[in-house]
Amino acid sequence: MNLNLLFHFGRYLTLMKTTFSKPEKFSMYWKETMRQMNDIGIGSLVIVGLIAIFIGAVTAVQFSDQLSGGLIPRYYIGYIVRDITIIELAPTITCLVLAGKVGSNMASELGGMRQKEHIDAMELMGVNTAAYLILPKLIAAVLIIPLLVSLAAIISIVGGYIAAVPFGQLTDPEYVRGVRSFFVPNYVLMMYVKAMVFAFILTTVSCYQGYYVTGGSIELGEASTQAVVYSDILILVADLVVAIALTG
C-alpha cells in the first residue's frame, strides 16, 4: 500500500516535471489555454452561481436562528455571512464542486484520448503530450477558478441578503452594515490563495488520473471517480494547511 502510494507520488512528480517544459509552439498552447478557460469558466458559471446563492442563503438563515437570543447584534449576521463565505465556503465548496465537474471532465477527456490512441499519435508526431494536454488546463484553471470563487463569494453574500432581508430575519440597513463591518482585507488574499492552490490540485490530480488510464470503459470510469475523490481529499487537507499557514 505504502509502496503503491510512493509509486503514484513519484509518477505524479515526473508528470509535473514533463508538464512544465518549454512549449513546442506558443500559439498552439495559447489557443488551447483559451479553449480551456472558456470550458472551465463559462461552462461552470451556472453551477457555481447556483451553489453560491444557496450557501449564502442557508448561512444567513441558520445564523439568524442561532443568534436570535438578543445578546449579539442582528447586523452580525451580515458580517458572519461575508467572512465565512470569503474565508471558507466560497473557495472550498466551489472547488469541491469544480473537482466533480471540471476534474472528472479532465480525467475522462485525457483517459479517452489515451484509449483512442490520440496521446500515442501526438507522441509519435513529437508532441510533448504531458505539456500540451495538461499545461493549458492548469494555466486556465489557476487563472479562472479564482475568478469563479470571487463570483461565488459575491453571489453568496447576495444570497444571504435574499434569504434574510425579505423574510424579516433582519432589515436591509442591518445586513448592509454587517457586510461592511470588521473587514479584514487579508481574508480576501486568503480566499485567492486557497482558490489557486485548490485549482492546482484539482487540475493536476485529475489530469494525472486521466493521463495514465489503461484498459477500457470501466477503468475510465474508475479514473474519473478517483480524480474527484482524491482531488476532494487533497483540497480539504490543503484547506487546513493554508488556513494554518496564513493565520498562524
Partner: peptide, 11 residues
C-alpha cells in the same frame, strides 16, 4: 517529425 503513423483506430 520524420515518422508518420496510421493507427488501427485512426486516432
Amino acid at each position: 517529425m520524420e515518422v508518420g503513423m496510421l493507427f488501427q483506430g485512426n486516432a
